[in-house]
Write a protein that binds this DNA or RNA. Structure first.
Length: 1100
RNA sequence: GCUCAGAUGGUGGAACUGGUAGACACGCAGGACUUAAAAUCCUGUUCCCGUAAACGGAGUGCGGGUUCGAUUCCCGCUCUGAGUACCA
């Protein structure tokens, strides 16, 4: 048979799913290898052709590692909390869980048909309670920790408390807030609990802090910087104001230095590391205190009698001619003299109108105002003017800068503008037209460092400052603590409640804190986050619903209807089902939970010996969802219905497809049914007569006088993705985020593939959480991702048609081919790339594409309509989106996989272009044909292979090994083509050669290889774990080599010479050659270079 | 401005440590098979001069340098892409 990719691919995808072929082992003697793709957000648009690029590369690598004898962990899951689903929910009222579920289903279908070897038994979703329970748990660990600088690691807050109790605040060297109290042990003990908690919050690794946000009252939400344009929201154009807000923050700055150091230990692309280094922004310098002149006479100057600055060029301190402080600086009022008051106030008013972004963006205009006061240079006592200017930001460093106009361009412009002195401080400085920040040369005008070099001067100045107590060497980081709260609905609830305005953790046994239902996904009218809409959602820490005097209510309730004989077993089953719901079950559950139908619905609840998918105990209605399983067991199913009827239950059934197509319609039907039913007769189920149906309490609906408010903001998008690689190690663990054994075995990710857009977000936060978990002894590695590869972005490639324009500038219905378009007046229009092949427009399809083109006319070149081309972002509006589904339909997954790799180096960005895909498809067909005769009958011989055949095989064995090791997948695809071309020329159909070829090719094109593997007589499913063929260099040894003979470095001809000859003999043999003599033209060569096995070069 | 990456035929790209530039594929041109088309197969295809061909010259963004020999190493520049920014 010809190569039937559709049947083959369907068959093997089903086989892998049925046999769990790629399930990673937990207990094995094999070495481990963990290959991970960056967590996808399941967007509504589904996969486009750019997404699978990295997944295909990682899949090839994973499959290759299996062949090489590794136990490979290659999981996939979804970062399923996020803004798009919430936006959609706001617009349509559709629960984000449902949208997300549907999107995941699309993703899964698309991923499956590309033939990835994921271990789906470990799938995780950040939005499922079973997952975010542990995100919340890690949050709790961060809350319960502080950073001990002396130990250089995070420690338990209990340890800090015991230190306070014994020694007070003395001797603590922590990363913490700036305004901490100093106290003795006795004073600590005398504090109220509330005072103590308030103080501890200043140390916790996650803490509440007031921060400024872009608040949009009209939208009732906080906007990111890039959602604000010129003081108005990008969406809707409503005014945006700066608002202070209490926000959860993560003390990532505690880890700044370790995050920086760690970069040297990991194998990541250099540009990516550089980005992180810049982001962390470590600068080594000094802090210097400038005493305020005449401080004693300034009224209300109570605290500091100096202004502190941070500088990276402390060596330039003698060039300081003025000081600039931020307009918001706390000392501005105090320092402003009466004469300057009007100026300063006017300037501050002006500044207030600018956003922080605008202040940073405007680099050209120089502005500022003099306060009228002075500081003294601590090293020479010179009087220095104090100015305010908006280029200095209060939030950065100390909010003050020492200005050195000779060395800093910004200070230079400022000094020129306001006529302030500019003092050169280095002899080589050239400062006639601009500042010169050089470090070369010797110092001048600089007191005791005159004549010194940069290094000497810096050391001398720091030493002097320290000696007189006016400053010290200091390291500053650009990175700030990360805000960890979002005023959104679709995210993890923060496991915190408030008592007397202070945050406390909920009890661990109450995790997960489940996201409550709300009527709308919008902020409240008073501007509170959407969670404030949840009715009765508050926390009551006690009494603890544990089973002191018997069963908890929930458990009792469960036992109520369960057959006692099977109780334990049933409980286990239903728990497992709840943790792994099907798509349809999950969607339906989101719509039925929390009495949304007006009735209490339970899921996976046991009745007799059975487990019902959903049940209302009150009404006795069982709702069953049918998958394939039930269809196959019609008899058993009917029997079950009969028994349930007997117990007084009504059973209604829906298929999964019905639920997926129209979930709300199904819910309507269920409601109608429930309303029409009388209450169930409870006497029918044995032992059930006098038990009372109670609504079981969840963490959410506890009632009581002393219930407390939960935190109403949710966690940001990066929370769930900051630890997910550990969950894959032990994805179904109910007791821990991952077991100690699993973590000890899998340790870290060996290969991580994804885009560089995550450089300063996900990849930095993940490293931070990982280091924290390491400090807590919960994980074993300091760095989570040992090796990282950035896949390049796939850009779109747009096609254009050129519409003829008439004399009046109006568009006509005539289109000019690209090559002729310059001879006419035309305007280019995007045309759908899917009706263009190799830049030739399919005219029939074009006419059908849009009604208005039905009668279009064309001016052709060479009988064809050629389209113009441009590289742009891939987007629907540009009609350049290529969907993998279409390509798989036409060519199959194996072709798509190989073509995406063939496109070029993985790391490089490139425009998507389907032009070459035919070649890859032809290659696979040619490969298939090696195993078949002219009549397409499978024909493979058991003959001994020839030398030439063995050479082809071993060349490719080695080539693919080398290429995969350096992630050069495109070159290995080319090599496969060469090998198959060679074997075709040799008419090779020898089993020993072809079977090895199948193994080598299988990571790239797994479906066709599985099929051929079985045709060759091997057991189905064994290919994925077959040993990779062993390379034997002996087959590649050559006796002769065609030496290129060059004259003065220009190749003139080739001469075959035995490789056993030594350079001296080669030279003699070359010079004796008649053709060479012709080139020499009787002249004696000056020099002859011979490199054995490489080249001969004759210099004349 | 700074940091990083890149620039090779009509196109995607190859050349791994300085040693035959353009592998492999697309496209294009010509041919075979066919009533025809599709599919398939064969041949050619860096540019220029010349041309039946041999042959000759130029050539890896631009200008220099090191070397017997440079796409590869060094110096200077241009352009493209990514990140980042009054960060003290």
């Amino acid at each position: 048979m010809d190569y039937q990719f559709k049947d083959i691919e369907k068959k093997w995808q089903q086989f892998w799913a049925d046999h769990q072929t790629f399930k990673a082992e937990d207990k094995t003697t094999k070495p481990k290898y963990y290959v991970l793709d960056m967590f996808p957000y399941p967007s509504g648009a589904g996969l486009h052709v750019g997404h699978p690029l990295g997944y295909i590369a990682s899949d090839i690598f994973a499959r290759y590692k299996r062949l090489k004898g590794f136990n490979v962990l290659h999981p996939m899951g979804y970062d399923s909390f996020g803004l798009p689903a919430e936006q959609y929910a706001i617009q349509t009222g559709q629960h984000p869980a449902i949208t997300t579920e549907a999107n995941i289903a699309t993703y899964r279908r698309q991923l499956d048909q590309i033939g990835f070897s994921f271990d789906w038994s470990r799938e995780v979703r950040t939005s499922s309670p079973g997952y975010y329970k542990w995100t919340q748990w890690i949050f709790m660990q961060l809350f319960n920790s502080w950073y001990n600088k002396d130990a250089d690691k995070a420690e338990s807050i209990a340890k800090l408390v015991s230190h306070f109790e014994q020694n007070g605040s003395a001797g603590i060297n922590a990363v913490c807030d700036e305004e901490i109290l100093s106290f003795t042990a006795a004073q600590w003990k005398a504090m109220s609990n509330q005072e103590q908690q308030a103080e501890l919050l200043k140390y916790r690794l996650t803490y509440l802090r007031e921060s400024t946000v872009n608040w949009c009252p009209a939208l009732g939400t906080v906007l990111a910087n890039d959602e604000v344009k010129d003081g108005f929201s990008e969406r809707g154009g409503y005014p945006v104001e700066q608002k202070k807000m209490m926000q959860w923050s993560m003390r990532i700055t505690a880890y700044a230095d370790r995050l920086l150091q760690g970069l040297d230990t990991i194998d990541w692309p250099e540009p990516l590391k550089e980005m992180q280094r810049n982001w962390i922004g470590k600068s080594v310098g000094a802090s210097v205190k400038f005493p305020i002149d005449n401080a004693a006479n300034i009224k209300s100057l109570t605290t500091n009698h100096y202004i502190e600055v941070f500088t990276t060029r402390v060596d330039t301190i003698f060039g300081v001619t003025f000081l600039v402080i931020a307009p918001e600086h706390e000392l501005v009022d105090v320092l402003t003299t009466p004469a300057q008051k009007a100026d300063i106030e006017a300037y501050i008013t002006k500044t207030k109108k600018k956003s922080e972004l605008e202040r940073m963006a405007d680099a050209k205009t120089v502005s500022g105002a003099f306060t009228g006061s002075y500081v003294l240079n601590p090293l020479n006592g010179e009087k220095v003017q104090i100015w305010i200017a908006d280029y200095v930001l209060a939030g950065y460093g100390t909010g003050a800068v020492m200005a050195v106009p000779s060395g800093d361009q910004r200070d230079y412009l400022f000094a020129k503008y306001f006529n302030l002195p500019i003092v050169p401080i280095i002899d080589l400085q050239k400062i006639d037209i601009e500042a010169d920040p050089t470090k070369e040369g010797k110092y001048i005008n600089s007191d005791f460092i005159n004549g010194l070099t940069y290094k000497e001067a810096t050391a001398a100045v720091v030493a002097k400052l320290e000696a007189i107590g006016a400053g010290k060497a200091k390291v500053n980081f650009r990175m700030r603590d990360a805000i960890f709260g979002r005023q959104r609905y679709w995210g993890e609830p923060v496991p915190v409640y408030f008592k007397d305005e202070l945050p406390y953790l909920i009890e661990e046994s109450h995790l997960p804190l489940v996201l409550p239902e709300v009527d709308k996904y919008l902020p409240t009218e008073s501007g509170e986050p959407p969670l404030a809409r949840a009715t009765g959602w508050n926390y009551k820490p006690h009494p603890n619903p544990t089973r002191k005097g018997g069963l908890s209510e929930q458990a009792a309730n469960y036992r109520e209807t369960a057959d006692p004989v099977y109780y334990e077993q049933l409980k286990e089953f239903s728990q497992a089902h709840r943790n792994q719901p099907t798509e349809a079950e999950n969607i339906l559950w989101q719509l039925l939970r929390n009495n949304q139908s007006g009735h209490k619905i339970r899921r996976q609840h046991s009745i007799g010996q059975f487990i019902a998918d959903f049940v209302s105990l009150q009404k006795g209605l069982v709702i069953e969802l049918d998958g394939h399983h039930h269809k196959l067991n019609k008899e058993a199913d009917d029997a079950r219905t009969e028994v349930l009827n007997h117990f007084g239950f009504t059973v209604i059934k829906f298929t999964n497809d019905e639920v997926l197509e129209n979930p709300t319609g199904i819910v309507e039907k269920i409601k109608l049914k429930l309303d029409s039913l009388p209450d169930r007769d409870k006497t029918l189920l044995s032992g059930d007569a006098d038990s009372e149906v109670k609504v079981s309490p969840t963490g959410g609906d506890l009632e009581g006088a002393d219930a407390f408010e939960y935190e109403l903001s949710t966690m940001p998008g990066w929370a769930g993705s900051s630890w997910y690689w550990y969950r894959y190690m032990d994805a179904n663990n109910d007791h821990e985020f991952a077991s100690k054994e699993a973590i000890a075995y899998w340790k870290d990710v060996d290969l991580y593939i994804g885009g560089s857009e995550h450089a300063t977000g996900h990849l930095l936060y993940s490293r931070f959480w990982n280091k924290f978990l390491k400090d807590m002894n919960l994980v074993v590695e300091e760095e989570p991702f040992k090796k990282l590869i950035n896949q390049g972005m796939i850009q779109g490639r747009s096609n254009f048609v050129y519409r003829l324009i008439d004399e009046l500038g109006r568009g006509t219905n005539t289109f000019v081919s690209y090559g002729l378009s310059k001879q006419y007046q035309t305007s280019p229009l995007h045309v759908d790339v899917n009706i263009v092949e190799n830049d030739v427009l399919n005219i029939d399809k074009f006419k059908k594409w849009r009604e208005e083109y039905a009668n279009a006319e064309f001016i052709l070149e060479g009988g064809k309509y050629i389209c113009g081309v441009e590289v742009e972002k891939m987007s629907k509006s540009k009609f350049n989106v290529v969907n993998p589904d279409d390509l798989i339909e036409r060519y199959g997954a194996d072709t798509l996989r190989m073509y995406e790799m063939f496109l070029g180096p993985l790391e490089q960005s490139k425009p998507w272009n389907t032009n070459g895909i035919e070649g890859v498809f032809k290659f696979l067909r040619k490969f298939w044909r090696l195993f078949h005769n002219d009549a397409w009958e499978f024909t493979v011989l058991n003959e001994e292979p020839t030398k030439a055949e063995l050479k082809s095989l071993h060349k490719i064995i080695r080539k693919v090994e080398e290429d995969i090791d350096r992630f050069s997948f495109n070159t290995s695809v080319s090599s496969f083509m060469i090998a198959v071309n060679e074997l075709t020329d040799l008419k090779c159909n020898k089993r020993s050669i072809l079977q090895d070829m199948v193994t080598i090719l299988s990571p790239y094109a797994p479906h066709i290889c599985e099929e051929l593997w079985v045709l060759l007589g091997n057991e189905a499913g064994t290919l994925s774990y077959a040993p990779y063929p062993k390379f034997n260099a002996a087959y590649l040894i050559e006796d002769e080599f065609a030496y290129p003979i060059s004259i003065n470095g220009k190749t003139k001809m080739n001469l075959s010479i035995s490789l056993s000859l030594e350079p001296k003999d080669i030279e003699a043999s070359v010079l004796a050659n008649a053709d060479v003599q012709k080139y020499l033209d009787g002249k004696a060569p000056k020099k002859v270079i011979v490199v054995k096995g490489r080249i001969v070069n004759i210099v004349l």
